[in-house]
């Protein structure tokens, strides 16, 4: 078990606005490499949660910890460790794209090569090099979004907090963004992204959180590129199935003598799973998804079909 503190932790964090509770006490932890998708309908409290995580807002109750330190006591830690992209990517309109990045770098204490190398790399990676001398006031929505992302990524933060990062991006740029974020997560950053797009979450995130009416209603890991299936077999065939399926790229868990839970990795699919079991002469009596898909969970919560926790 690692002794390292979580990259970011919310301990019973709540927020009031004008006497109204806009975020109920919420507890969350993000470890290095986690990519958390924050989902919710408009007004669910996503942006408030992100602002609390980024230190832009202070909790009314509870505390936010960044690498084990209370963010309220050590706000200056945010400077080096947090990269934040607010909704609509606010930029200083008088500055060019390059000046914008330089200003962000200078505010974070970066100078010389420590600023210029990541700046030029990000300009290339986010396809901003041709726009480097253009005024930010003249950028399109997608271009602004990419500049905002570059500003958030410039100092290679441990924690990335992104509010609707995919807004205005075309499919190529979206894929480019996903690659960039996967690289940051692989390098040990914890990433939180808020989005309305479930596909964005399933494609990128390791975990999904659903907020509804300021309350955390769902927090579960996602198995990126994989699916979990519950297999029903003939009597006492579970152990045999484990042996047969060991050749598959999958995690296998025996529930009882007749049921096996199979989590397929990205290079295996359910058809291969079924063929393997049938080919081994096992009685395949049932094959169903082990958990409801995220879309159904989201719709159930958003439509009020799932009651709030007592």
């Amino acid at each position: 078990m690692s002794s390292l503190p979580p990259r970011l932790a919310l301990h019973a964090v709540s927020r009031r606005r004008a006497g109204r509770l806009v975020l109920e006490p919420t507890t969350l932890q993000l470890a290095a490499g986690d990519v958390l998708g924050l989902l919710g309908v408009n007004g669910a409290g996503k942006s408030t949660t992100l602002m609390l995580m980024a230190g832009v807002l202070a909790p009314s109750h509870g505390r936010v910890e960044l690498n084990g330190a209370d963010l309220a006591e050590w706000p200056q830690r945010a400077r080096r460790h947090i990269g934040y992209l607010p909704e609509h990517a606010p930029l200083w309109p008088e500055l060019t794209v390059r000046e914008q990045l330089d200003a962000h770098g200078a505010l974070r204490g970066l100078r010389g090569a420590a600023l210029h190398v990541p700046r030029d790399t990000l300009l290339q990676r986010l396809d901003l090099a041709p726009l480097a001398r253009r005024l930010c006031a003249q950028l399109s929505l997608g271009q602004r979004q990419r500049v905002g992302l570059a500003c958030a990524l410039l100092h290679q933060p441990d924690v990335l907090i992104l509010d609707e990062p995919g807004t205005g991006l075309d499919p190529v740029q979206t894929e480019n963004l996903r690659t960039l974020l996967r690289e940051r997560a692989a390098a040990g950053a914890a990433i939180v992204l808020s989005t309305h797009l479930l596909t964005e979450v399933t494609a990128l995130c390791t975990r999904a959180v659903i907020l509804h009416q300021g309350e955390l209603r769902h927090d579960a890991p996602l198995h990126t590129g994989a699916a979990a299936w519950r297999v029903t077999l003939g009597a006492k065939q579970a152990e045999s199935a484990r042996t047969v399926l060991s050749a598959l790229s999958a995690a296998i868990e025996i529930e009882d003598a007749q049921h096996v839970l199979v989590r397929l990795h990205h290079d295996a699919d359910v058809a291969l799973l079924a063929r393997t079991l049938v080919g081994a002469k096992l009685a395949l009596l049932g094959l169903e998804p082990a958990s409801p898909p995220l879309a159904r969970v989201f719709m159930d919560i958003a439509s009020g079909r799932v009651e709030r926790a007592a």
Binding site: G55, R79, I82, Y84, P86, H88, P90, P93, L107
Partner: peptide, 14 residues
């Protein structure tokens, strides 16, 4: 109004 104050606050600037 422009939302850029949030950027300054997010950097923990006093």
């Amino acid at each position: 109004r422009a939302g850029t104050l949030a950027l300054l606050l997010a950097q923990g600037l006093p």
